[in-house]
Structure formats: structure tokens, C-alpha cells
Nucleic acid binder design. Structure first.
Lengths: 150, 150
DNA sequence: CTTGATGCAAAATATTTGCATGCTC
DNA sequence: GAGCATGCAAATATTTTGCATCAAG
């Protein structure tokens, strides 16, 4: 996993390149994603920032705007499941897919080389220029099955 | 692909089994999904029903309620992409995955046996009871690439 | 000092829910 | 007739936008 200073430099580099401004708010959103592993809703990220930096004033709209920016630039990835909105995680991690438990909401990440390769072949078969791909395995995790058995 | 009479019987069977009622609205939603191939939003389905049955009064709330019901029972499948809400298609089709063009929104369905098998293995590896899985290949279709080249 | 960024609140969307009434069974 | 289903509108929930103000470059 890349470290935080690197991510921060990436952010600054991208902002400069696009002639956008580096602001405390943008840094706080990136930091929140970095410090809190997992997949969070914009609302949660907003709360996390308020908790760790009670003095900083960051509006929910800015969180939304920043998350979109980070995602566009690859510094954040999003996933959505069911009716709930998007959840974000820090980007620049190794590509991976997800197992999602419908009982407890747990998300497990995995990587499977065979699947990756086949995806590329499928894209080629349909003459698609693949820019991204996602796979979700939905189901019930072991813990939840055990609990239900009781 | 299964035919409509079969789907209708399935719906009736399921409703009876759950002691729910067979209503004109529920049939209309199923029929709209059957008659209009592709992936539609609840709003679109509502409009399709109004167009084909101008006399029938079907509220948007009922469309939402019915789509959820159909999905739970396997008579409809949903997919969501980006910020937009869910889009539904008729269920009981052969399982398949999707290629989604980010330019024109086109959705192409495909099936790949190797990927299917690997998914099962991944689920087993994490001791997950897989109830469903989805794969989306996001990219730019040939037509859109050609148009952009012009 | 110029221009993009922010916070706030209002607006726009999307979806769900309460409730009186209507329809299946 | 009993109870689920429906339509409608109101309530939620979620995300976006306009605008005056602030701050980075």
C-alpha cells in the first residue's frame, strides 16, 4: 500500500497540473480515506473529518465535490451495492474485487488473476476499450451463517 | 428466453405461495419488463406502462414496490452504475454479466464460463455462501470510439 | 488581485412511507 | 367481509447547485 506522503504529493501534482487549488479541505478528505480503511459513504467521511479535526469546517457539499474529484483522478475508488449510494475507499491500491455480505454488510477484497485475464478477453471480443471493471460476489459470510444456525 | 405466459404463471404461483394478491398493477409491471428488452429505471417502467395502458392507473410507488418484489422473487434483476439508481430487466434469463459504455450508456450482456467457475472458487476460498454475483466491464464501445476519432 | 474553492441553504432527485380507500381472495 | 394492495401526497434520503464570500496562487 502506498504511504500517505506519497498520496499527498500525488494530489498536489494533479491539482497543479489541472490548475486547481490545494486546500485544507481536499487534504482532509484524502487523509480521512487513508486513515480509515474500508468503504465509507460521503456522510461517514464527513463525520470522520469532523471527529478528527473538530475545528476544521468542511461542508458536506465539499466532501461530495472532493470525492468526485479524487475518484476522477484515481486517488479514490467507489463501489455501490443495492439501494445505498456510493461508498469510497482510498485509491492507488492494487486492483481488486469484492465479496459483499448481505447480512452484515462486510466487504472482503480479493484478486484473481484468471478472472482479470478473462475480462480482458471479453472486452476484446466485443471490441470494447475497457477503462475499468468491477466484480461483486454477493452472499452470506461464514460468521453470519454460523450466527443464523444458532 | 422464457415466454410471457410462463412468467405470468410464475408470478401467480409465487404470490399464492406467499399469500399475496395478484393485481393488475403487478401484472403490468411484469409485462413492461418482458416487452421492453433492456435495463430500465423505475421511472421509465412507469412511463412505459402509462403509454401502453393509458387507462390503467399505476402509481410510481407501486412500481417501486412491485420491482422490489419481483427482484426478491427472481422475476427481475437489477443493475446499478455510477450515481444513477437501479435499472431493472426481466429475470429468469440465463445468467449473464454486463459491458457498459460510459459514452453512450449502452449495455451489452455476455456470459463467460471460465469467469463463472472462478467466482465459485473465490467464494469457496473465503467460505462465502454466494447468492449472486455481478460483473461489470466499464469502457468505451467501438461505435463511440469511431465517433470520437472523426 | 484573479480565479477557483467553500459553506450554506435551497433545489433537484430518488425512494419510501402513512393512510384512507379499493380490490382480491 | 378480512386483509393486502394501491394511489396520493407527504416525508426521507441523497446529491447537486447557486451564490456570496474566502483564500490559494
Amino acid at each position: 500500500m502506498v504511504d500517505y506522503p506519497f498520496l499527498l504529493e500525488e494530489l498536489k501534482r494533479i491539482l497543479k497540473e489541472k490548475q486547481l487549488k490545494f486546500t485544507a479541505q481536499r487534504e482532509l478528505v484524502l487523509k480521512a480515506l487513508y486513515e480509515h480503511e474500508g468503504h465509507h459513504s460521503p456522510e461517514e467521511i464527513h463525520r470522520l473529518i469532523q471527529e478528527s479535526s473538530p475545528d476544521a469546517k468542511v461542508g458536506i457539499a465539499t466532501v461530495y465535490r472532493t470525492l468526485s474529484l479524487l475518484e476522477e483522478e484515481g486517488l479514490a475508488d467507489s463501489i455501490s451495492f443495492g439501494t445505498e449510494g456510493k461508498r469510497y475507499e482510498i485509491g492507488l491500491k492494487k486492483h481488486h474485487d469484492h465479496l459483499i455480505c448481505i447480512r452484515c454488510g462486510k466487504i472482503i477484497e480479493f484478486f484473481d488473476d484468471t478472472i482479470e485475464k478473462r475480462q480482458e478477453e471479453v472486452a476484446k471480443r466485443f471490441d470494447f476499450e475497457m477503462t475499468d471493471h468491477t466484480m461483486k460476489i454477493i452472499g452470506i459470510c461464514k460468521e453470519c451463517r454460523d450466527n443464523e444456525a444458532k
